[in-house]
Structure formats: C-alpha cells, structure tokens
Amino acid sequence: MEATKENYFYAEKPVGQLLSRRDFLKAAGVSVSAIAISGYVVTDIVQKRKSYIALRQQGLYKDDKRLQKINLAGSHQNASCLKVYQDMGTKPMGEVAEQLLHTKTYVDRSNLLMQGAHHG
C-alpha cells in the first residue's frame, strides 16, 4: 500500500514561481472589481425596476378605481360572466364549467428531472 501511495505523489508548483506580489494584486484586484460590479449591477437594476413596477401598478389601480365608480368592483358584478353561465346552462363549478374552466392535470415533473440527472 505504501508503495502505491508514493506512485501518486504529486507536488504543486510553489505559487511564488508563477505569481509575483504585483501579479497577485492585479489578479485579486480584477476579481474583486468583477464581483463588485455584478453586485452593483444587481442592486442598480432592482432600484430602477422598483420605480417602473410602481408606475405600472398605479396604472392598474387607476383602472380599478374607474370601474369601482361604475359599480364594477367585484367579479360577481360582471354581467357578461353571468351571461356565460346562463347561455351554457351551468354555474360556477357546474358540469360544463368543470369541463371548460378547470383542469385536473398537474404533472409531477420531479421524477423526470431526477432521471435526467442520473443519466447525465
């Protein structure tokens, strides 16, 4: 066993031969700034995005207010929806509604994912 171990002995080149103090500072500086930039970019994106998300949301709440004023706050007040149930001879979660508006198919995809990983 001892002999086998020796066959696999391997020494790394000392880092000093490859990288001077100056080189090390360069490499460290570049990696730190690269990490800092991506961190900064993500924060910057999140900051900017907050402003336009808020504006778009306000647009929708403005629409909501307009509809509340004409007595259309909740879905049960939508006359077109009630017409659908009447025309189709059904009600919420009725037989036809179940066929057209509900799904029974949610697929467990986790096993499939694992298969992919094992064979990869």
Partner: peptide, 11 residues
C-alpha cells in the same frame, strides 16, 4: 366587459 377585480390581476 370587466371589473376592477379583474384588472388588478396584473399586480
């Protein structure tokens, strides 16, 4: 035809 409830789905 739609109500306020529907339009706020987007937020």
């Amino acid at each position: 035809v739609y109500t306020g409830a529907a339009t706020i789905f987007g937020a």
